[in-house]
Design a protein around this nucleic acid. Structure first.
Lengths: 228, 228
DNA sequence: CTACTTTGTGTCAAATTAACGCAAACAGAT
DNA sequence: ATCTGTTTGCGTTAATTTGACACAAAGTAG
């Protein structure tokens, strides 16, 4: 028996906070459990880490098999260790959060349709395990992150307008930002490229379309919002 | 057999990056391994998580028993999952970093004196496992953190001078900061209280002594240094 | 053609920052 | 005592950034 195997090891789960944005709402993907514990309660999707998997492997396994998704922004959030967080015994959770564009996926038409559902983070059901803590940490991280890091576009279409990005920021940060100052900061940072065309079919003046600038490295930018 | 126990679980180690600052150098505590693998190589202190322990419990166990330390700034850094990071088998590492004032502890006089040593982060030996990756991540985190969060004082004495804090920042960030602008930002943030007295025994004009302000909540501050 | 809405562009005072001047307070040498 | 060199504390000022607006352009609806 190897030295590091002399004790039983805690189980290791990877739990996912999948954020999706649509209709001016930041939503999170929840799974309705069919087994105990927390049967019929909503929880974050997750799985136990297999011996040969990396965390990202497990993330992709969950998102692929359960949700039919793949390939998007994924970042490690935090590891949760409260001894009683799982009533079955000792389970450590490594939490990741993902940013996806729901319109690119067919969640509802998946093979476990009734089990998986988007919830607005403003209207959450009671969650099982310590998943509310994990979700809160993820929201906090996301809010802090978009202030200086251009991750917002992960939640939008490839082409998006400035008002759309602006509304995304206001929704996530739950505050109002002067649209003209916002525009100036974002454009000064060089992280967008104008696609030349405009979004048609809206009520009023057609807004310009932009794409995320994958070529050059964006400058620093900083949206000044006092969180906490 | 419980559901979550149907597979063998990876071992779970807690590894510690202990930062200490003295003589204008940011140092990290390393342990010389006495066993394989990486026998006689320097590594981060760490231990396997016991079934009933929290991460912080393990941290304190390591710092207490191996280093005779206790009670200081400790923050979770990241969890490392590379499958081959430990040649003995699958071991996940949850990394924490600590900020301590070396003058408050007797590392060298500990019970494993020859095994434990401070190294300047500028003159590191080759490290075992993936501990260089962990250390790099910790340095990066610390550098980003002190720009907006008053954690610097954790590395200094209870009473410290403005030039000391200034040199600490310059050392950690490896850049020069105008001392007069630095002073203004720090003092404006209200996170220091003047202790009234001055540091005696130095060559030139005696600098004022300050303490960290535990009473009131400091204002936001932001040192503008372009990392990366 | 008018009213209304939304988007794009610009302006300007206030706040913040970066860069630097200078005197106060010490030690040590003359 | 006085001078020199150094470090610390306290300002000043110009440049930059920010926050709060005004206003025209481009659309729809009546």
């Amino acid at each position: 028996m190897k030295a590091f195997d002399q004790y039983r090891n805690p189980a290791l789960a990877v739990d996912l906070v999948v954020f999706g944005y649509y209709e001016n709402s930041l939503n999170v993907l929840l799974l309705n459990r069919k087994e105990e514990p927390f049967k019929n309660r909503w929880t974050l999707p997750g799985a136990f880490l297999q011996m040969e998997e990396t965390f990202l492997d497990t993330c992709n396994r969950v998102l692929n098999t359960k949700l039919g998704m793949d390939n998007f922004f994924l970042e490690q959030l935090y590891s949760f260790d409260a001894p009683e967080r799982d009533p079955r015994g000792r389970v450590i959770a490594v939490a990741y959060y993902a940013l996806i564009n729901p319109s690119k996926f067919e969640i509802v038409a998946g093979n476990m349709a009734n089990d998986v559902q988007w919830f607005s983070i403003d209207e959450l059901p009671k969650l099982g395990f310590d998943h509310k803590d994990i979700l809160d940490a993820a929201v906090k991280r996301l809010r802090a992150k978009i202030l200086y890091n251009p991750v917002g576009f992960e939640l939008l279409n490839d082409e998006f307008t400035m008002p759309e990005l602006h509304r995304l920021y206001e929704t996530i940060l739950q505050t109002s930002i002067d649209r003209r100052n916002f525009r100036r900061k974002i454009l000064d940072s060089d992280y967008l490229v104008s696609s030349g065309s405009k979004r048609e079919g809206l009520q009023n003046r057609p807004p310009d379309l932009y794409q995320f600038n994958k070529a050059l490295k964006p400058n620093k930018f900083q949206i000044n919002i006092d969180l906490s």
